[in-house]
Write a protein that binds this DNA or RNA. Structure first.
Length: 217
DNA sequence: CAGTTTCA
DNA sequence: CCAG
């Protein structure tokens, strides 16, 4: 248990906000400018580069994505799925860095979800104007495990809705180092990210990165 | 909304 | 319907 990996990253999160039952925002749970986290993202992207995946209908997403871990989330004109191989490289996704697993597990624990061992980390890169429309994470086999989402770089407006697309989502400002975790009754909550504003972050420059940890398989 | 896919 |  290399729990020291996280202690270097842990910031005193001064705020624990309950967005809904079993949906927790941990403000500043992770250092806002962690070179370790950032370079781990860059390492993964050297093996499986960021790409703009297609969705059904042939549109391309404004968010650039890659993955690490045993399973990676992918989208193409046929739909969504998790795969052990990166369709772009034909090779396995880069391994989950121990630091990532540690961050995910510790933050899940802080949010009230014990024993979280993710096998998938979707890495999203937002540039100004990139957005993620409201959606549910429902391609995972085991819905009893939470989703843990870590923000790094430019701030964003997190959209957190309800169990139906109809419900008007709350708009929550999230910044580098903020972590949102949702599971249990909130596991299938519709969520998204509003169009990113321009900016310049000391660690990530013009980008926002988001690590989304799941137990997918 | 428009375009696609999927399936009743 | 819908991670556009």
């Amino acid at each position: 248990m290399p729990s020291d990996l996280f202690s270097d990253l842990a910031a005193e999160h001064e705020e624990r906000l309950e967005l809904a039952p079993e949906a927790i925002l941990l403000r500043g749970a992770v250092k806002a400018e962690s070179p370790e986290l950032f370079s781990a993202i860059m390492d993964a992207a050297r093996i499986s580069p960021f790409r703009h995946m297609a969705v059904r209908g042939g549109f391309r997403m404004s968010v650039a994505m890659t993955n690490c871990g045993h399973l990676g989330w992918t989208s193409d004109e046929k739909g969504y799925r998790y795969s052990t191989l990166d369709p772009e490289t034909g090779k396995p996704w880069p391994a989950m860095p121990p630091l990532f697993a540690e961050v995910a597990s510790r933050c899940a624990s802080l949010a009230g979800f014990a024993d979280f061992e993710p096998d998938a980390c979707l890495i999203n890169r937002y540039k100004p104007d990139a957005r993620m429309t409201l959606h549910q994470d429902k391609n995972e086999v085991d819905m009893s495990r939470p989703i843990v989402s870590v923000s790094l770089g430019l701030p964003a407006t997190f959209l957190f809705g309800g169990m139906t697309r109809k419900e008007r989502p709350r708009r929550i400002r999230i910044e580098s180092g903020d972590v949102v975790a949702w599971g249990g009754a909130a596991r299938l909550t519709y969520h998204g990210i509003a169009a990113l504003a321009e900016g310049d972050h000391p660690l990530t420059g013009p980008f926002r990165y988001n690590l989304t940890f799941r137990k997918a398989g």
